[in-house]
Design a protein around this nucleic acid. Structure first.
Lengths: 193, 193
DNA sequence: TCGATCATATACCGTTCGGTATATTCCTTC
DNA sequence: GAAGGAATATACCGAACGGTATATGATCGA
């Protein structure tokens, strides 16, 4: 059944968030899901395959949200402040909706290059960066002095957003609408403004 | 000998950077260091003890550099731009000097809460944040409209710096002096400036 | 009702895990 | 040169690892 796969994925993201991919055994996941190992291997083929399916579902969904929120051309063209706000809000809302996956995603952003999480997460991480880079490149058409700086802008924007998410997950920060509005304002106009 | 400990630590940081703490076996480290397991356990007591010694040495040194670079009161009082520049430069220089530890440090910044790396890294991560928060709080004395915002400023500053370090380690960015000067300028005065 | 296919379980594989009881070598100090 | 501690090695522990060969229910079209 499809519900079995879903249950396994739910238990997996919770376990990976709490203890990390490498530290979680396949046996643990099976017991938590109320199944046995052959069932897990029937559905996902391997432990890395399970992680891949998890990322396909959740990282794909997250990236779709970010890309939708950061789309610069079209009806919102010119409203860079609004676009950055909705993009950063997408980061935070995703963490509120699915804190376990947010933890796994953050951990994957700096995971070691010779590891399953790196191989599995890399295309999704690149897609996330590409979405934000595209937004800054599109904005540079209307703001000439931003030209050629899309990558550093995207890095600092994603870095800051993920830092907020990390603090939120740790309970050290509540990034409400006002906080995000101010954060975007600083990003665009500097910390003195 | 002291050199044995040093050799083990050097091999450990390289292995953890490449494959991650959990994925590296004690046996691997012993073979890479040319010793046997009882020797490692004689010096460090446990695998977590080894990680702790590693962080004590390298994370402590990194934090000392950051705190020195970000000290706001004293002779440089008022020169916030210079302080932020030297602080971000400390991040990047540390990554150039010791890329393996930089990888391990980045990985530790979002590692799962029920893991050895989290327990071991947490005090150092808090010390790093505290150093940068202190700098922004001190600066708020001279820049009134920054008051009460030290934590979000520190988060976005550290988040952006670590994002640059991550891109540097991946070979996607060369954060030279000019890059850092511009990055600090955007941080202080916004991306349009 | 008969195969066939999907989905699941029992029981097991060899390997590696972190860690240790014990013995030995080396270096220093008296 | 004897004593003693510091540093190292041999050989082993039980447990857990990821993964699988094989068998069994369930479901369903012919």
């Amino acid at each position: 059944m499809e519900s079995t796969k879903k249950r396994i994925l739910d238990e997996a993201v919770a376990a990976f968030a709490a203890r990390g991919y490498e530290a979680v055994g396949v046996q643990d996941l099976c017991e938590a899901s109320g199944i046995t190992k052959p069932t897990l291997y029937y559905h996902f083929g391997s432990k890395a395959g399970l992680l891949s399916a998890l990322f396909e579902e959740r990282f794909g969904g997250f990236n779709a949200c970010v890309r939708a929120a950061s789309a610069y051309p079209g009806p919102r063209r010119g409203d860079l402040a609004g676009i950055l706000l909705s993009t950063m809000t997408a980061f935070v809302d995703a963490a509120r909706d699915d804190p376990d996956f947010a933890r796994v995603r953050l951990a994957s952003s700096f995971c070691p290059p010779s590891s399953d999480p790196y191989r599995v997460a890399r295309p999704h991480l690149e897609a996330l960066y590409a979405a934000v880079v595209d937004a800054f490149e599109a904005a540079a058409v209307d703001h000439g002095n931003m030209a050629g700086r899309a990558l550093p802008y995207a890095a600092s924007f994603i870095g800051a957003s993920d830092a907020y998410v990390g603090l939120y997950l740790a309970g050290d920060l509540d990034p409400d609408a006002g906080f995000l509005r101010r954060a975007v304002h600083y990003f665009m106009h500097g910390i003195f403004s």
